[in-house]
């Protein structure tokens, strides 16, 4: 199956558009909307459900992210070299992935249910949030689908395309600036769908509350407890921040 024009657009051009939007959007947001850069927590309104659902979702997601990093960035040749067989790799990846994926999905389902049914939380939900939840859930669902399809294929002995021979080389090739469109074209439909939703999510990322992930406070582990800071110099009239132009 040779790549069509659409394939070139989707797997050759789109990733760069998304990268540009992701990086440019994040820089822009950081420069012009540091005040809006927050988790926008709703814990003040409702704490009981959140205290279960939020950690379940977030820790599940962290495992999912680690899984993606391993699956996409580590070439098959490397794992072969250390003696991990294909079977071992896939059993581990699929079982861990399924557990993490289901956990994440369960967490976000509970969170969305809470968001919908708790009055104050629901009224604090913006359209932006709703769009983001839609794409995020779609990405998780599509991702779980690929995992389950692979697992089923593995169990029944059928042949499912191995993402480590299709998606992963393509993903890495995007960063060498020589996108391997053919590799991605060879992937199965589920993987393509998941990748497309993922790209959409990345493009939306800087413009949603998801940006709080970029400010994960790891630095906290290394700083002294009490922070001293000098008084800010007041902006002089010439350097006073200009109000943003679109309101």
């Amino acid at each position: 199956m040779s790549p069509t024009t659409l394939d070139y657009l989707l797997w050759g051009a789109l990733p760069y558009v998304v990268l540009a939007v992701l990086i440019g959007g994040t820089v822009w947001r950081y420069r012009y909307d540091r005040f809006g850069w927050t988790t926008r927590s709703s814990q003040l309104y409702e704490s009981r459900l959140l205290r279960i659902a939020s950690p379940v979702f977030h820790f599940g997601l962290l495992v999912v992210i680690v899984g993606h990093v391993v699956g996409l960035l580590i070439p098959e040749t490397w794992t072969d070299a250390v003696g991990i067989t294909d079977g071992m790799y896939h059993v581990t990846a699929l079982s861990l992935g399924a557990v993490a994926g289901v956990t994440t999905l369960g967490g976000i389902a509970l969170l969305i249910w809470r968001r919908r049914t708790n009055g104050p939380v629901f009224s604090a939900t913006t359209v932006n949030d709703k769009v983001m939840y839609l794409v995020l859930v779609a990405a998780i669902l599509a991702g779980l689908a690929t995992t389950l399809l692979s697992a089923v294929a593995g169990l029944t002995g059928g042949h499912e395309t191995d993402y480590r021979e299709t998606v992963s080389p393509w993903f890495r090739s995007v960063f060498y600036l020589q996108p391997d469109v053919a590799a991605m074209t060879a992937a199965s439909g589920a993987f393509k769908l998941h990748a497309l939703i993922g790209l959409t999510l990345f493009a939306l990322f800087p413009f949603t509350r998801l940006v709080h992930a970029f400010s994960a406070p790891v630095w906290y582990l290394f700083r002294p407890y009490v922070v001293y800071r000098s008084r800010d110099e007041e902006p002089t009239p010439s350097t006073r921040p200009i109000r943003r132009g679109w309101s």
Binding site: R29, F35, R40, P241, S247
Partner: peptide
């Protein structure tokens, strides 16, 4: 003017 990313995003007044 609606703020783009939920209420109170954008630049605050000092």
């Amino acid at each position: 003017g609606e703020a783009p990313f939920g209420e109170a995003s954008g630049r605050p007044q000092p």
